[in-house]
């Protein structure tokens, strides 16, 4: 091995990168998992109040948001197929659709929250103080868990936005797309959490 034979390999470990993303996803799963246990215990202790409070949530809005997230999960999954097939244009379109759907989800959430707040249902509100402990717990968990989930949507949008720009600038392509795949994994995590939030808050009354 002579000195001149030194060549500059790109230092990259895609498998290690994916492993790191999964380890991070596990911490997220346990974070929300802990909140689900808090929900389960308080529901167990305040069954009647949780039953009545859950009826206040709009199933239609919840269902629309579920459909939006499921479709966006598919489009971002398809984008990793498109990039592997060297179809840059389709990759950008699919990431773009995902970002638009994410924005629509947030707009729905904004109107949903505004509706609740205008009815005096928000943490620490006089209306809730009158309704009692069970309702305070239900709406406290509702705002905290859907709020934390919405924060994850925003982080996911930034993550996928970076992926979009890199595909656009050709810094991310068919032989180097781990960032996009990791962004996709994060987006599916956001979907996964909503899959449980939706029945627990909207469907089960």
């Amino acid at each position: 091995m002579s000195e001149t034979a030194v060549h500059h390999d790109e230092h990259r470990d895609d498998l290690g990168s994916k492993l790191g993303m999964w380890l991070f996803i596990f911490t997220e799963l346990l974070l929300f998992g802990g909140l689900f246990i808090v929900y389960a215990v308080y529901r167990h202790a305040n069954q009647e109040a949780f039953h009545l409070a859950a009826k206040q949530l709009d199933v239609t809005v919840g269902t629309i948001n579920t459909v939006i997230l499921l479709i966006s999960s598919m489009t971002i999954a398809m984008s990793t197929t498109a990039i592997q097939k060297k179809d840059k244009k389709l990759t950008l379109i699919l990431i773009g659709i995902t970002l638009i759907l994410a924005l629509v989800f947030l707009v729905n959430k904004y109107f949903e929250w505004s509706g609740k707040i205008s009815h005096g249902l928000y943490p620490g509100s006089p209306v809730l103080e009158e309704l009692g402990q069970g309702d305070i717990l239900f709406f406290g968990l509702y705002f905290f868990m859907t709020g934390l989930h919405a924060v994850h949507i925003i982080v996911g949008m930034v993550f996928l936005g970076v992926g979009f720009m890199r595909v656009k600038n050709d810094r991310l392509s068919f032989d180097n797309y781990q960032l996009l795949e990791n962004g996709g994994l994060y987006w599916h995590l956001v979907d996964l959490i909503w899959i449980f939030l939706f029945p627990l808050f909207y469907l089960i009354t």
Partner: peptide, 18 residues
């Protein structure tokens, strides 16, 4: 409801998350 949610999450993990 929880059984259906678990089935959905299994599918997401298996296919969408590869």
């Amino acid at each position: 409801a929880l059984l259906l949610a678990s089935t959905k999450s299994f599918i997401v993990l298996a296919i969408f998350m590869h």
